[in-house]
Simulated scan of single mutants.
Amino acid sequence: MIKAIAVDKDGTFLKSDHTYDKAYFEKIFDELKRQDIKFIVASGNQYAQLQSFFPEKDQHITYVAENGAVTYYDNELMTSYYFDQQLIYDVVETLTRYFKLTDIVLSGIQSAYVKQICSDEFLNFISNYYYDIEKVASFKQIENDNFVKVAMRIKDKDLVEKVINTLETKFAGELRAVTSGNDSVDLILPNVNKGVAIQDVLKQWGIKHDELLAFGDANNDIEMLDLTTHSYAMANCSPEVEAVAQHKAPSNDDSGVLQVIEQYLKRQK
């Protein structure tokens, strides 16, 4: 019996054009509410951005945002985990000094932040994943916020490997680097991920791991998929995700998540 469903957003629930079949979803969502099945949107994206895709559903959707760093339900912050601020400044200095990276976004609980020197291309790119974005001359001028994630876009795959190896060596035990699709690299807290956050809410609800249905496509979904035997890798997933998930779902462009959920709902009627 499935009592909760967790879905990644980009590359999983959303199609490649960042849309989803709203009529199909409304049909499925009505049945989820009827069967009292919890619906969790779990993403590396910002809470405000996730929320914008599901208007007027705050009382029915739990949002695990920023790769598990923040969890919201009904517009209330349930849990949050954030970095030491000086660590983030040291990380950004390493990225800019050694790798000349400027397309960096800091995710705070209040907003997302980019430097004024970031490229217009990067700003347009991250607008697909962040709803509230502020430009600042220096990250050090940010006040009254806590940083939950650092993200960057690196198109050179060899450079991705160098950046990840350098950061995980220099800041061992203080951060973890994960790829999240679309040339994106996320720096997250080492013991915080979608799986940890979802485990917390399942415990609050009294729901067992094998009562969870989960979907993902990228490496930041691995811990979430590893929670349950009802785990689905999308047709377009990474090799690492395919190795962890117990099942394969149709492509995100074919509404694969909704197809699989519909099958489960029919069995539980």
Rank of each mutant, 00 (worst) to 15 (best):
I5P: 08
V7P: 07
K9C: 15
G11V: 11
S16M: 12
D17C: 06
K22C: 09
F25Q: 00
K27W: 03
K33T: 02
Q35P: 09
I37W: 02
V41M: 11
A48T: 08
Q49T: 02
Q51S: 11
F54I: 05
K57W: 00
K57V: 02
Q59C: 00
T71Q: 00
Y72H: 03
Y72C: 00
F83C: 02
F83Q: 00
D84Q: 12
Q86E: 14
Y89Q: 11
F99G: 08
K100V: 08
D103V: 04
I109Y: 01
I109N: 05
Y113T: 00
Y113V: 02
Q116D: 14
I117L: 13
L123K: 14
N124Q: 13
F125Y: 14
I126W: 05
Y130W: 04
A137Y: 11
S138E: 13
F139G: 08
K140Q: 14
V148W: 04
K149N: 08
I154W: 03
K157W: 09
T166E: 15
E168V: 12
T169N: 14
K170V: 03
L175Q: 03
A177H: 07
S184W: 12
D186M: 10
L187P: 01
L187V: 09
I188Q: 03
L189C: 09
P190I: 01
N191F: 11
K194Q: 05
G195M: 03
I198T: 06
D200W: 10
E211Q: 12
G216P: 03
A218I: 11
N220I: 03
L227Q: 06
M234E: 09
A235K: 09
A235Y: 07
N236H: 06
S238R: 13
S238M: 11
E240H: 08
A243V: 02
A243L: 12
A249C: 08
P250R: 04
S255L: 07
G256I: 03
Q268S: 10
